[in-house]
Computed example of a mutant assay.
Amino acid sequence: MIKIYAPASIGNVGVGFDILGVAIKPIDGTLLGDCISIQSSNSFQLNYHGDFSKQLPKDIKKNVTWQAWNWFNEKTKKKKQISITLEKNMPIGSGLGSSASSIVASVLALNKFYKTKLTKKELIHIMGILEGNISGSIHYDNVAPCYLGGLQIITDDIHHITQKLPIFDNWLWVIAWPGINLSTSIARNILPSKYDKEICIKNNRNLSTFIHALYTQQQELAIRVMIDSIAEPYRIPLIPNFLKIKNEITKLGASTCNISGSGPTLFSICLNVSIANKVKKWLETNYIKNKTGFVHICTVDKLGARKLRI
């Protein structure tokens, strides 16, 4: 049997709309990500379990794991009868790379099972295509960190689609999903089709400064320029009381408060465990809407997707 785990990820990372993404892992050891298990079978089976398996589409052909299996069938010209189990530990429409987690785990597990020996570039490319089937356009800011780990910048270069960036090891990433879903396509469609030149200049300046600060280890500078001028101003109405929440947790000592991906998950960077715990407790009390919501204190997952011991 093959079992692959693919971690949660934060797209955009505030300043890097559709360009930056980071893989994360809770410090308490929780596997915040999806798992795919594959074994030989006499007939094709796709089984679901996990806390969020009921959120998966009823039509099997709309399931990204089925789409990945179908892609490998067409690629190899062999329709293998296998049993696939998707452990859905990630809420759909959460802003934590839920679809990317399923896609990455599925593609890597199928690549091993079919023995196709695809290159890293080929694997990322098919992951991006499958992600695009959901969001409407190919993008890699979740699949790249989910697959490769760490903080990734999407270069879209012909030879290297993505590159790993340095990151501050002491940063604690507090992530809060309120327990409600937000469609990625709705969150993308609310954005303007054209932007004012000054907004573009400001965003480019902040992104460039952020990357410079990472390489020169200027932590405070990196935090100051983690400003989302491309998506956040337009997505605020989709997240009730966002500005109030941002104000309250920064008063507790949080260094940032941004929307994770398309939302509604929020992420906040804290510089020590004491502050992170205060922010976590406040968000649990004031942002979580139901029993399915959660708050985790995380660090960067530097490994990305990996094989688990059975």
Rank of each mutant, 00 (worst) to 15 (best):
A6C: 03
S41M: 14
V13Q: 00
V273H: 00
S43L: 15
L191V: 06
I201V: 15
I190P: 01
N12T: 11
S268E: 12
P264V: 13
V174A: 02
V64C: 03
H49R: 04
L86N: 04
K120M: 04
K291N: 13
I129D: 10
E220C: 08
I230A: 02
I201L: 06
S40T: 07
K251W: 10
G150V: 13
L130D: 02
C146D: 03
I27Y: 03
H125P: 00
L214Q: 11
W282V: 08
I190T: 12
V273T: 10
N12F: 08
V295R: 06
L96W: 11
Y215D: 08
C35L: 14
Q217P: 00
T30A: 02
N42P: 15
G50D: 09
T116M: 00
S106Y: 06
T116L: 02
F267D: 00
I92T: 09
A231Y: 09
A187C: 12
P26I: 12
L110C: 02
G29F: 06
K281Y: 13
I310K: 05
G263H: 06
N63C: 10
K291A: 13
D28I: 10
L271N: 14
I82A: 02
V104T: 14
I84P: 03
E122T: 06
L108I: 13
Q152F: 10
L271M: 12
A276F: 08
L182E: 10
W282H: 13
H125S: 06
M1I: 09
V295Y: 09
I84N: 01
W282D: 02
Q218A: 00
T292P: 04
N277S: 01
G253I: 05
N12S: 07
K281R: 12
Y215N: 07
V107Y: 05
D59G: 06
L96Y: 07
D196V: 02
Y287D: 04
L123V: 13
I180V: 15
K3D: 01
V295P: 04
V107W: 03
D141M: 13
G95A: 09
G128F: 11
T155N: 12
K251Q: 14
N12M: 09
S183P: 08
N290T: 05
L191Q: 00
N47C: 12
R309Q: 07
D169E: 14
S40H: 12
I24R: 03
K120S: 09
N203G: 05
G29S: 03
N181E: 04
D196L: 09
N277P: 01
E284K: 14
G29P: 08
K251H: 08
S99N: 02
Q152M: 14
S260W: 09
P26A: 01
I190D: 00
R224A: 14
I236N: 00
